[in-house]
């Protein structure tokens, strides 16, 4: 396993329980999608896995090595192999450094290449992510959002990492630019076999890029499955609600809407049972007692819902208009 996360817990100062007992793993060459709405803890998991945050509890194994409590010096060395790309392309790059220097930086930090070799390598990287060579001498504010995100990706892959966390890498980009970035990521994975943790709230994009998908709700995994299975046969009521709320960009597709009412619990004061029970149309009394265990439906597909045991987990859609 490239990455193996066990019982990850994170609590922010102030008592916000952002991540609550999350376990998952990523194999080499695999893309794992992490979906959820705001407050689901998906970005926090990205920061924990790359150790930009120190977890409150649990263990993180990266290439078999326990990195949960790594000292700063060892952590810095690790960063050559474990990388992250952030959502905001305009804010992710030092505004006072040229693109060339930004691309050279990871090489300067982790290799023994001399200046000339670094410049040559920066050129090659720029070319690989299809940045015009002229952009190397430019400053970040002179580039478009799509180009900036290519710079961030080039920086991330500069030292040939084993795993890249992509935290909403295309969410702030326009549709036509987004497609180009997704294509680039796809190519890079095919060429280098890099593993990816793709974090997004955009269901269509996650479906397109992921091999497997995990659905999060309030920092807890409610369901995980191979991408096609999850989107075609969602088992957890929350997954069903989430998918039904999505608006496919095609007027010919009919919407099957699930109505949910009730308030989302506060992450400071979480209920003892299933976090979704308060809004769930098929909740049982037992759902509020203890967290439901993950129940396996088939190979690689599991969901944390008590209703799965007797097959009553599928909720009826409120019939949608024509």
């Amino acid at each position: 396993m490239m990455l193996d996360v066990q019982n990850l817990v994170h609590r922010f100062p102030g008592g916000v329980n952002a991540v609550n007992d999350v376990s998952f793993s990523i194999a080499a060459g695999e893309t794992l999608g992490l979906v959820g709405e705001s407050g689901s803890g998906k970005s926090t998991i990205g920061l924990l896995v790359t150790r930009l945050l120190a977890p409150t509890g649990g263990t993180i194994l990266f290439e078999g090595e326990d990195i949960t409590r790594l000292p700063p010096a060892a952590l810095r060395k690790l960063r050559a192999r474990l990388q992250i790309v952030f959502q905001d392309p305009w804010g992710s790059l030092n505004p006072r450094m040229t693109i060339g220097r930004l691309l050279e930086e990871p090489l300067a930090l982790h290799t023994t290449l001399d200046s000339a070799a670094r410049i040559a390598e920066a050129r090659r990287l720029a070319d690989r992510v299809r940045l015009p060579a002229a952009s190397l001498s430019r400053y970040p504010h002179e580039l478009s959002g799509g180009q900036l995100q290519r710079v961030s990706i080039a920086r991330a892959i500069a030292n040939r990492p084993k795993l890249v966390v992509l935290d909403e890498p295309t969410s702030s980009l326009d549709l036509s630019v987004r497609a180009g970035i997704l294509q680039l990521l796809d190519e890079l994975q095919r060429e280098t076999g890099i593993a990816m943790l793709f974090i997004s709230h955009d269901l269509e994009t996650v479906r397109l890029v992921s091999h497997r998908v995990i659905v999060l709700y309030l920092g807890r995994i409610v369901e995980q499955a191979p991408a096609a299975t999850l989107f075609d046969n969602p088992a957890h009521p929350y997954t069903q609600v989430l998918l039904s709320a999505h608006l496919p960009p095609d007027p010919a597709m009919r919407l099957r809407r699930h109505e949910v009412t009730g308030e989302i619990p506060s992450p400071i004061n979480l209920p003892p049972g299933c976090f979704f029970a308060g809004r769930c149309p098929v909740a049982l009394p037992a759902c509020t007692a203890a967290p439901p265990p993950a129940i396996a439906l088939e190979a690689g597909h599991s969901a944390a819902c008590l209703r799965i045991a007797d097959g009553t987990n599928i909720i009826d859609p409120v019939e949608e208009r024509a």
Binding site: P72, K77, R79, A80, G91, S92, N94, P106, L109, H110
Partner: peptide, 25 residues
């Protein structure tokens, strides 16, 4: 700022984050 976080993620030691990324800005 995200770029400071990105600088840490790239593997910059603390002094370099401070002097190269934060100070000039």
């Amino acid at each position: 700022a995200t770029f400071v976080r990105a600088a840490v993620a790239a593997g910059n030691p603390e002094w370099r984050v401070l002097l190269v990324h934060i100070l000039p800005n």
